[in-house]
């Protein structure tokens, strides 16, 4: 009985220790686990110029200019905006007001993307963008999402 009790405590303590360790490690690596940065983080200079990063946000309404396969648009989190240049094929869900993630780097104030992915969300707005919007005071939970009306 006592040995079983001891094994029970050993397993529980081991799991608690392991969870604490993994938790600390994940917190420490927070910055590399996030999939993308917001335009505000870029504006705050959290990303060194020339460094490859992903940025995520909404495609600003009226910002998309297509010239064959050369596309330029702005990505916004409603507080800050980043201009993006991209050459290539866009995913079907790409449109104005849509949440997207672009991978590339900043060159002279313009984000040159090598890949553009669409972010899908039943709320029609990525949670992270919504959080960013809420943080910057442009959107309240339950309120209408800003500039995300379906383009169809």
């Amino acid at each position: 009985m006592t040995r079983k009790r001891r094994r029970l405590y050993f397993v529980l303590l081991g799991l608690a220790g392991l969870a604490a360790g993994v938790g600390l490690a994940l917190t420490a690596f927070q910055d590399s686990i996030v999939f993308f940065r917001s335009p505000s983080e870029i504006a705050e200079g959290k990303v060194a110029g020339g460094q490859r990063v992903r940025i995520g946000g909404l495609v600003e309404n009226g910002s998309v200019v297509k010239n064959g396969q050369n596309i330029s648009f702005s990505v916004t989190d409603m507080a800050n905006t980043v201009k993006v240049h991209y050459t290539g094929l866009l995913p079907d869900l790409f449109r104005e007001g849509q949440g997207i993630v672009a991978e590339g780097k900043m060159e002279q104030g313009v984000f040159v993307a090598s890949e553009v992915l669409a972010k899908h969300d039943e709320n029609y707005m990525p949670k992270e963008v919504a959080d960013a919007l809420k943080k910057s005071g442009h959107w309240q939970e339950g309120g209408p999402p800003p500039s995300t009306a379906p383009a169809k």
Binding site: L15, I33, D121
Partner: peptide, 26 residues
């Protein structure tokens, strides 16, 4: 089996703890 269970909350909450391409739970 016991050690791996640490991964379960990470999978479930990953979409809330970090920004991801994957959408949050519906």
């Amino acid at each position: 089996g016991v050690v791996g269970s640490v991964n379960l909350p990470i999978i479930h909450f990953s979409v809330e703890w970090w920004n991801t391409l994957h959408q949050p739970s519906i």
